[in-house]
Design a protein around this nucleic acid. Structure first.
Length: 872
RNA sequence: GGGUGAUUAGCUCAGUUGGUUCAGAGCACUACCUCGACAAGGUAGGGGUCACUGGUUCGAGCCCAGUAUCACCCACCA
């Protein structure tokens, strides 16, 4: 068979993915096995794959594939999120480009457009995940707007309302004037920015005096209904009970006093705009101030503002500053660093706004969710995130869940014209409820709440609703709680915390056992990869170039849990190179199959095999342990070294037959078996390459023998002594190669090795030394031979004849350097041993080791000195 | 303003109870090598006062205190 010298992923990826799907290896249904479940963090239905998804889903796939191989009933549930505000914004933009305004459409018409958009773009991202190799059970693909899912969201709302945990109320909320909707606190991103602090004078009624206030938002002057000072502020004590005139609008408002005011800040005097600031709203309530809502839902000035009606808030700010200057009320303007809230989705500057919205009362709901994370029923990786979680949960605020949007789950509340309402599962039920209070009420008079629910009010049910858990026990009892959740820390409060809350509320049980937080994928300069910066490679392009396996390895090489991943394509290159290395190891082993003969293996083969098997077991032990601790990168790196260094560089070199020589059949079979085990351990990281080689390496007669469903290697007791012997062997071989190099002895030239050993040196690897280093013989001698060059390994001294090519001066220099260093080292050891306190308090093993260090150093010094003498 | 974490080789990071194997790994770098698997490769090598300052200890990358810098999260200071 002629096999290309380079691995080409294009020949394998689609082939094997189709094979896996055809054989339904990713499909799961409840059976007698123990389940191992992961629910995907559902990406936005109309989104496209970015690097964050790549990292996240690669980790999930690694975990689920390994679980499958370990005999669990592995179930990875894929799906998408309707992403209410994000999707609606996209649809609105697309309609606008077509000249259609959302306002001109009926709800039904708009929804039709939105569904069209969803069907057109929805699921692209899921197709992309298949390219990555994601082994999801695609039959289970869920969408938060699916019929059953939709119903579970509505029923949850009704249930929480019945329990008194959902209420409707007028509160200050975060208003997005672009999307024209309320947002939860979590959807507001505060950004630091350079603004201005305007000092404005207000005239005191009945006197010539003025009072100066400082504000960052002069346009809200239109809504001022008081000025507030600190009761103990001596500067203003004489003004208690007086009134001032709001400039431009010329409204008389009271001066109130409240300890809320910071006397040190600005002028120590605060204007109060209850309708447009959360603190001012509280002050207004406390002091029973008038509330003037001077802004429309789109951020323009309302009739109530009296001036600048219809103008945008930012234009008004510029204009009012000009007008205040003209009227002489503007005292000064300072630069001022402050934080301004922006909408997470539209980036619009948030407007605090008084509004009637629906809220979830979070106080009691949050309690079990806090406790079970703190006591590690649910484990966070890395655990440091427990702190922020606790912080948030302990200060949890009510959750504003209504959104003034159409794309989403419509709130199941019906209103009469006169402010009564009922929450019910249907118009009929709502009508029946309201009839009790108002017997003459007609069904036609009821109007359903036009608003929809926050996206997260549907996704917090994800681990339950994807198994239809609200309506049937069949699947949920089997798959719930799930095992691992892999997600980004950014959505810990949005999603993770709320899933935990919903889990305990509705299942009485945690939704998952482990939460693995991935880091942020950054570019070389440390910037977050984002579409707007254009610094993010297209993952699909990367897969095209480096292969899915290469990219997967690249993503995981340096991404410990919770740490950011500084991404560079060179990582994918490293992954690709690794795939190629394995491919070529296969080519070598494969080539031997036709060169085997039936004879007993040689002793050196036997040693090599025994060592390699032990080494594999040792690393398997490490890797299993790494997985337990979610140290995925470490597991991959151990495997990388096991394959590249131990298997390729050492093992294969040891058993490699000489030119035109054959290999013992036994050795070949043992090697094939080792290779197969390596492929298995590699499979979760590199599914495509390993499946390909698995079939090449051995004929697999039925599909069920595929590596994807093969059994994870067994852990067995292994020979630790040979691992120690190997280390010594490795050191000797490296030293001999080093001598060859420094003395310019060609590898082809056979050399003699002499060995002087104080103890008995008897390495099982002796024959391997001879083979690997082209040694003609190893002679044990009883004394040092000063005319030969030497090196020491442990307490053994090895000699190689000086080559005529050797550079004597360089050799002398090297010896002097080593001598100096060793003398210094010995001095420090002696100092330690001369310290009575050390000898008395250190454990005997430590003292003993120091003694051995001394002996070794002393004999090395002796050797080096003799050598120096002989060199002249 | 509060909290959390970090600082170890050029880069990205390991370093579990203080003591053999503690100063490590991968990449990058240097030199040599087309040798019958692989140049996407091989062999060998160079490189760090473990952020700083003190302290505890026979002994500190690790424990304690302080300082500096960075990062993230939370918070309504006009």
């Amino acid at each position: 068979m002629d096999i290309a010298s380079k691995y080409d992923p294009k020949n394998t990826e689609q082939k094997w993915y189709d094979f896996w799907i055809e054989n339904r290896f990713f499909a799961s249904k409840p059976d007698h096995r123990t389940p191992y479940t992961i629910v995907i963090p559902p990406p936005n239905v109309t989104g496209v794959l970015h690097m964050g998804h790549m990292l996240n889903n690669t980790i999930q796939d690694v975990l689920i594939r390994r679980a499958r191989m370990r005999g669990y009933n592995a179930c990875w549930v894929p799906g998408t999120d309707h992403a209410s505000i994000a999707t609606e914004a996209k649809v609105v933009r697309k309609l606008r480009e077509e000249g259609i305004k959302k306002g001109d459409l009926s709800r039904e018409e708009f929804m039709k457009h939105a569904w069209e958009w969803t069907h057109k773009h929805g699921g692209i991202i899921l197709q992309q995940l298949k390219k990555l190799g994601a082994s999801c059970d695609w039959d289970r693909t869920s969408f938060t707007m699916d019929e059953k899912y939709y119903q579970s969201v509505i029923d949850t709302f009704i249930d929480l309302h019945r329990k008194g945990k959902i209420y409707r109320g007028e509160r200050m909320i975060n208003w997005d004037p672009v999307a024209k909707t309320a947002l939860s606190d979590e959807e507001v991103i505060y950004k630091e920015g350079l603004g201005k602090l305007y000092h404005v004078s207000y005239k005191v009624v009945g006197s010539d005096e003025v009072i100066n206030i400082a504000t960052t938002r002069p346009e809200t002057i239109l809504g001022d209904t008081a000025v507030c000072i600190h009761p103990n502020d001596d500067r203003y004590k004489h003004l208690h009970g007086k009134k001032v005139i709001v400039p431009l609008v010329n409204r008389e408002v009271p001066i109130i006093t409240d300890e809320y005011v910071d006397m040190e800040f600005g002028t120590g005097c605060l204007k109060v705009t209850p309708a447009h600031d959360t603190n001012d709203y509280d002050l207004g309530k406390k002091h029973q101030l008038e509330v003037i809502n001077m802004m429309n839902d789109d951020g323009t000035v309302s009739e109530a503002g009296k001036l600048y009606i219809g103008m945008d808030r930012f234009d008004v700010r510029k204009q009012i500053v000009e007008d205040l200057k003209s009227s002489g009320n503007l005292i000064k303007v300072e630069d001022y660093q402050n934080k301004v809230g922006h909408s997470e989705r539209t980036d619009a500057v948030i407007e605090p706004r008084l509004s009637l919205q629906w809220f979830v009362d979070m106080k009691d709901l949050g309690k079990p969710a806090l406790d079970h994370v703190m006591n590690d029923d649910i484990k966070f990786y890395p655990p440091k995130f427990k702190n922020s979680y606790r912080n948030w949960m302990e200060n949890i605020k009510d959750w504003c869940i209504s959104r003034q949007l159409w794309w989403g789950h419509q709130i199941p509340a019906w209103y009469t014209g006169d402010g009564q309402y009922a929450v019910a599962s249907s118009l009929e039920e709502a009508h029946a409820q309201l009839l009790l209070k108002n017997p003459s009420l007609k069904k036609e008079d009821l109007k359903q709440d036009p608003d929809v629910l926050d996206t997260w009010f549907s996704s917090w049910l994800w681990p339950i609703s994807v198994f239809n858990g609200f309506y049937s026990k069949e699947e949920i009892n089997y798959y719930y709680p799930t095992q691992d959740l892999v997600t980004a820390p950014e959505i810990m409060f949005f999603w993770v915390a709320r899933m935990i809350i919903a889990g305990y509320e509705y299942m009485g049980e945690k939704p998952f056992t482990n939460v693995y937080y991935t880091g942020i994928v950054r570019d070389k300069q440390g910037r977050k990869m984002s579409k707007s910066l254009g610094n993010s490679p297209d993952p699909i392009d990367l897969i095209e170039e480096y292969g899915a396996d290469g990219v997967r390895v690249g993503m995981l090489l340096t991404s410990p849990a919770g740490n950011d991943l500084p991404f560079d394509v060179s990582l994918c290159e490293q992954g690709r190179n690794f795939a190629n290395k394995i491919w070529n190891a296969f080519r070598l082993v494969n080539g031997w199959e036709s060169r085997t003969e039936n004879r007993a293996m040689t002793g050196s083969d036997e040693v090599a095999i025994r060592w390699m098997k032990s080494r594999l077991q040792q690393v398997l032990e490490e890797i299993d342990d790494d997985y337990e601790k979610f140290r995925i990168s470490e597991a991959l790196m151990s495997l990388y070294k096991l394959v590249w260094d131990d298997f390729c560089s050492w093992y294969l070199e040891m058993i490699k037959p000489g030119f035109e020589q054959n290999m013992s059949r036994e050795t070949f079979e043992a090697t094939r078996s080792i290779f197969e085990n390596l492929l298995k351990i590699l499979h979760p990281f590199m599914p495509f390459l390993t499946e390909e080689l698995w079939h090449h390496l051995n004929e697999r007669k039925s599909a069920d023998e595929a590596i994807v469903v093969s059994a994870w290697p067994m852990r067995v007791a292994y020979d630790k002594t040979i691992l120690e012997n190997f280390k010594e062997f490795e050191e000797i071989v490296t030293a001999i190669r080093n001598v060859r190099k420094t003395q310019n002895i060609p590898n082809k030239e056979s050399i003699t090795l002499k060995m002087f050993s104080s103890a008995s040196f008897d390495s099982p690897f002796t024959d391997n030394i001879i083979r690997l280093c082209n040694i003609s013989s190893i002679d044990k001698v009883n004394e040092s031979d000063k005319s030969w060059t030497s090196f020491m390994v442990d307490s053994n001294e090895f000699f190689i004849p000086m080559s005529s090519n050797a550079d004597m001066e360089a050799e002398k220099e090297r010896i002097i350097k080593e001598l100096d260093y060793t003398k210094g080292f010995l001095a420090s050891v002696m100092k330690k041993l001369g310290n009575e306190k050390f000898v008395n308090s250190a454990p005997p093993a430590v003292v003993e080791s120091e003694n051995k260090k001394r002996q070794d150093a002393e004999s090395l010094i002796r050797v080096l000195e003799e050598k120096l003498v002989s060199l002249g």
